[in-house]
Design a protein around this nucleic acid. Sequence first.
DNA 1: GCTTGAGCTTCCAGCAACTGGAAGGCCTAT
DNA 2: ATAGGCCTTCCAGTTGCTGGAAGCTCAAGC
Lengths: 131, 131
Amino acid sequence: MNIGEAARQSELPPKTIRYYEDIALVKPSRSSNGYRDYSENDIHRLRFLQRSRSLGFTIEECRLLLSLYEDDQRASADVKAVANQKIIEIDHKIKELRSLRKTLSALAENCHGDDKPDCPIIDDLAGRRGR
Amino acid sequence: MNIGEAARQSELPPKTIRYYEDIALVKPSRSSNGYRDYSENDIHRLRFLQRSRSLGFTIEECRLLLSLYEDDQRASADVKAVANQKIIEIDHKIKELRSLRKTLSALAENCHGDDKPDCPIIDDLAGRRGR
DNA sequence: GCTTGAGCTTCCAGCAACTGGAAGGCCTAT
DNA sequence: ATAGGCCTTCCAGTTGCTGGAAGCTCAAGC
């Protein structure tokens, strides 16, 4: 199967698939004309990557998950640990974003939003509080 | 004022300050020995950048905010629009992260987390639902 | 005067995870 | 034969820094 069809089936752009080969996440064979030739198993790996990337795992985490995926002897605890770690990171990011949001919306609420130059947002950014 | 002191006052690493000069966000003068020489106004700009970056604005947004900062004729509505746009983006990111978290925690909850190979997380990543 | 150490300079490279584009080969159909 | 669409490789760019090497300057201590 050529890269175009592999792209369709895995829902990944061809560029990304080539990149995944560069960093040794997939190793398709080659046809006699030099074209990449993807097996069913390659497609499984690509789909797996697509799904795990979309769940926010980094490439290196995907590499780990992929090795667990292909290890029939894996312990489910190992996989669960990776997932739980990711959940912690996500919680942390959400917390940060909420805090940013709070600050920004407080600033925006205090801003008249008219065509006058007076602006509490700028004042805050400039370090001038409660002028 | 040398870069080290500018770094202390702006709470930005010297490397970052030099980078901001590379991308034309600050233009300090030079002392006779070739050292960068930061004025009070330069420090204001650096502080402004530090604060706006920490609030999640991109470099290009900071550049815009900085030009508004130095424009005495600015309309506060312009600044408010940038802030509100950012709030929308933050909301979007939070929503995405919450959705990721939900999926991941559902998967982790269904996983025994023992030393057996059976693992619903891997099954999901591989595209095998509800086996 | 000399050395030491901190602080400054420039430049080059690398991080993550792709993405875009150029130059060219291949394949199929008309 | 030619057009187009797909494929190949390679190089460069994205964002926002950060690390490191090689070398200059400056102030302090002996």
